[in-house]
Design a protein around this nucleic acid. Structure first.
Lengths: 189, 189
DNA sequence: TTCTATTTTTGACTTTAGTCAAAACTTTAA
DNA sequence: TTAAAGTTTTGACTAAAGTCAAAAATAGAA
């Protein structure tokens, strides 16, 4: 189920009528990208919404000397720069492939055309947006209420195997701590 | 414009047809609540989406001894417990009135009925959700990248007059610091 | 392989924020 | 108007995380 791609994901939210499925298929492109590919570079407007069929990705931004990881996204998940894709402004985030990917994507204009021609698709769009919004709130809450050790343990639970894909520096930047601090947290157990 | 209520807000996103406007009007209730009213109690499922016509509110939750403010919301803004209203599960947040309010609201079932009868309204729902989602991401980023002093200064810029409405303890809990720390930040200027 | 580059850990020290308790202010209501 | 309750500030101390530098471990290429 998880590996059958975007249409299955969408149909699991609300069954889409034939014509709508056809429209999505006609726009959808599937591509393979190797590790280190940048799906989006900071400064560009996020044009495509990616659905990860296989692989692992990271969104991050830099501020001064420091790099901050905003999200890790794996199989069966969407990845965009929320701010840029929705607001149509240049992204402060970049998105990179951490583990060779097969992704499906459509661009913003095509998505709007689908929303226009098939208004019922707004339901699906709204529900996906709600789900990711909940995740964003949860993340903000965890940054405030959990100790850095607990945040680290939670990340390992949420993404088992992440240690094989992501450097500790990147993990630290997601957790909101410095790499040295993460190293010390790990040493104590 | 800001004070003319929910329908104006919605029409500013996408003009709604007469029938849809009528449906919303028929469900909409307008109420006045004094300071300290709880619009939502933690543990309950968030049933209503509130639009603040006048006044000021706060969403917060407690964890152990500590209280955390998640959002302040003022005139012309919506307030719900995102997690609870969207997922239909009990809220960990409470929502309280900080400054006497006039709010307009409809409940979840009514909203779903409107989405069903007027699918084009999903467009408006999706766009509002996107806008608030962007805010949520921005907040998470600011908690990570700005010093507590800068976060305080930004809050004053975003909500001028907030000091007259909100206690410093509540502001500190929104900024992710202790009240004593905020007090010291304020003393240094 | 082995050598280089990168990542991770460790050490010594500094900075920032938290804790607990008491004092100084402000509100609120009798 | 004044006592009580609540809020904010200050002080002394502790804990958590950051900084900078170097050593150790690991991964990649030649």
């Amino acid at each position: 189920m998880e590996t059958l791609g975007l249409l299955n994901k969408l149909n699991s939210i609300a069954i889409l009528q034939e014509g709508l499925q056809g429209a999505i298929k006609s726009y959808l492109i599937e591509e393979a990208f190797p590790r280190k590919t940048l799906l989006l570079k900071a400064g560009q407007v996020s044009q495509r919404i990616y659905f990860i069929k296989k692989g692992f990705t990271r969104a991050y931004y830099t501020k001064g000397e420091n790099e901050f990881s905003t999200w890790f996204m794996g199989e069966d998940e969407f990845i965009i720069s929320v701010y840029s894709f929705f607001s149509r402004r240049p992204s402060f985030e970049s998105i990179e492939v951490l583990e060779d990917c097969i992704v499906q994507s459509i661009n913003w204009d095509q998505l709007q055309a689908i929303y226009k021609q098939y208004p019922e698709f707004n339901l699906t769009g709204r529900i996906i947006t709600e789900q990711y919004y909940i995740r964003s709130e949860e993340r903000a809450i965890q940054l405030q209420t959990l100790s850095s050790k607990k945040r680290y343990e939670k990340l390992l639970r949420d993404y088992p195997g992440i240690l094989q894909k992501v450097s500790l520096g990147q993990i630290a930047s997601y957790l909101g701590i410095k790499q040295e601090t993460l190293s010390r947290i790990r040493a104590h157990k």
